[in-house]
Simulated assay, not measured.
Amino acid sequence: METYKALIATFALTALYTGPVVAGPPVTVTFMNLGTQTATYTPITNNEAITKVNASPTPQASVIANGSNTYTIQSQISPDYNHANFRYQIGNKKCVYLATFVTAPGYGASKIPKWNNTATPGGGATCTIKVTKTNPSSYAWSVKITMK
């Protein structure tokens, strides 16, 4: 009977294990609302929805004027890729942000990391995105995004 219980426990643990997690380097995002009204987090596109799913904790639905919100996003697609695509709105002003990381093959087994960041304003908004830190060994990075 003890052997039977041990086999069931082993099977249950094996069934839950699906292999190694393949995750890209995390990006820590700090959103700062520099406006005079509340900013709302409004994911619309598929990439923005994926970003929300990959975020921990989930971004706050709204950020008060002069407030901030910090969260981490980690893609589950590849250890050589991550993206964060998010949209905020204050009244008619809109900002769409995109932060990406990808590695390209280098010489031998080396990899060449590349971080790209864009902020696209709409409705008279001022939007910025800036890398504040990168880790050369894990490729994790941090960005500060602002909206006004």
Rank of each mutant, 00 (worst) to 15 (best):
F11E: 12
T28D: 10
A99G: 07
Y97V: 02
T100N: 15
N82H: 02
Y17E: 07
T30R: 04
T40S: 14
L13T: 03
N85F: 07
Q89V: 09
T30N: 09
G106K: 04
H83W: 06
T100M: 12
K5M: 11
L34S: 09
A9H: 11
K93M: 11
T58W: 06
L7A: 12
Y4D: 11
P20Q: 15
Y71I: 03
K52A: 15
P26Y: 11
P59F: 10
T18S: 06
K5A: 14
P20L: 14
V53Q: 08
T36A: 14
A61Q: 09
P43D: 04
N46K: 01
I73P: 01
S75I: 02
T42R: 05
G19D: 10
K93G: 01
V63G: 00
Q76V: 05
I64D: 15
F11G: 06
V27I: 08
Y88D: 06
T28P: 01
F31C: 08
P57E: 13
P57M: 10
F86E: 01
N82D: 13
C95Q: 05
T72A: 13
T14A: 15
Y81D: 08
L34D: 09
N82T: 05
T42M: 08
T28A: 04
I90F: 04
C95P: 03
Y88T: 06
P57Y: 10
P59D: 11
A84L: 04
I112N: 15
T18H: 08
L34W: 00
T58G: 08
A104T: 12
V102W: 06
T40I: 14
A99Q: 03
F86H: 03
Y81S: 04
G67W: 12
T38S: 15
T36K: 06
E48H: 01
T14P: 02
L7P: 00
A9L: 09
A23E: 14
M1C: 12
A99M: 10
N47I: 00
A104R: 11
T70W: 04
K93C: 02
N46A: 15
T10E: 13
N33M: 03
P20R: 13
N66M: 14
P113R: 03
P57A: 11
E2D: 10
N85T: 10
R87F: 05
I44E: 10
Q37C: 06
E2T: 13
N69A: 09
A39C: 08
I90P: 01
G108I: 08
T58D: 12
Q74D: 05
V21D: 10
V29W: 04
P26C: 00
P57Q: 07
V63L: 07
A55F: 02
I112F: 12
N46M: 07
P26H: 06
V96C: 07
T51P: 01
F101L: 04
G35P: 03
T28G: 03
S75R: 00
T70G: 02
E48W: 02
A104C: 05
V27T: 04
S110N: 08
P25E: 08
A99P: 00
A109R: 06
N69R: 00
L13R: 10
A109E: 12
T103G: 05
T103A: 04
N69W: 08
G67H: 03
I8Y: 13
I50W: 11
